[in-house]
Simulated assay, not measured.
Amino acid sequence: MPEVAPEARIGTEGGEFRERPIERIGEPRRWRNAERTRADLLEIATEEFAEKGFAGARVDEIVRRCGVTKNVLYHYFESKERLFVEVMELAYARMRKRQNEWSFADLEPKDAMAKLTIFTFEHFRDEPQVIRLLNSENLHKAKHIAMSGKIPDLYHPLIAAIRDVLAKGRAAGQFRADVDPVDLYITISGLSYFYLSNQYTLGYVLRQDLMAPERLKQREKHMVDVVLGYLRA
C-alpha cells in the first residue's frame, strides 16, 4: 500500500484559502473536497459532543478522527463554541426536515395529531444523539443555541401547522377550544423525551425492557391515547 503523506495543512493561493492536497507517494495529488471536510467535521463533532457533552469533547480528538489539523477546523468554525452551535443547528434542522416530509393538510385532525405524536417519539428513538445533545445544552442553559439565528425560526412553521390542525379539529367538533399549540407540542415532546432519555434507569428500577419492540408499540399507543384524550371536545 502506498505511504500516506502527512495530513493536510492550510495553504493560500492568491489570497484565497485552500487545503493542501492529500498525497500518496507514487499517486497523483488530490485536493481534499472542502464541503466534504466541513460535513465530516460536523458529523464527527456531533458524535463527540453527544458522547462527552460540550465540556468533555475535545477539539484534538475531533480533528484526529477527521484527519485534518486544528487550523482547518478553526477556518470553518472559528471556535469550539461555534462548532457546537452548528452541530445543534444541524440536529434541529434534521428533525424539522423529517417533519416537513409529510403534511398535516391531507389528514383528519385526529390522524394528524396521532401522526405527530408517533413521529416525535420515533425521531428521538432513531436519533439518540439528539437527546444527549439536548441534555448537554440544557446543562448550559441554552447558552450556545442562543448564539444561533436559525433554530427558533425552524419551529415557526411547525407551531403554525399545529395551530391549523387544532382549528380544524375545533371546527369539526373533535377538539376542545382552549388548547395552546406551544403547550401541546411541549407535552408531545415530553412524552417521548422523558421515556427515552430515562430508559436505562426506569428500565432497571421497573424491571422492564423499555426498548423491546412490543414495549415501544405499547408506548406509542399510550401516548396517542393521552394526547387525543386531552384534545377531545
Score class of each variant (00 low, 15 high):
L134I: 14
Q174G: 06
A171V: 05
A177E: 15
I151Y: 05
A146W: 01
P128F: 07
L158Q: 11
L158T: 09
Y155P: 01
R163M: 04
S148Y: 07
A142L: 12
R170W: 09
H156A: 11
A160Y: 02
A160S: 13
A177Y: 01
D164S: 13
F175E: 06
E137V: 01
R163K: 15
K150C: 02
L158I: 08
L139G: 07
S136C: 05
K168H: 09
H140E: 14
I162L: 02
A172L: 06
D153N: 05
N135C: 06
Q129G: 12
L139P: 00
A146I: 06
V130N: 12
A177C: 04
G173A: 11
G169H: 07
A142C: 09
K141A: 15
D178I: 07
A177P: 04
I159Y: 14
Q174I: 05
H156N: 14
V165G: 02
A171T: 09
A146N: 14
D153K: 02
Y155G: 11
V165W: 01
G169A: 09
L139A: 08
H156G: 04
A142E: 12
K143R: 15
H156Q: 12
A160K: 05
R132G: 05
S136R: 04
F175N: 07
G169Q: 06
I145L: 15
K143T: 11
A160E: 15
A142M: 10
L134F: 14
P128Q: 08
G169E: 08
L154H: 01
L154C: 01
Q129V: 08
R132E: 15
P157S: 03
L133A: 11
H156W: 04
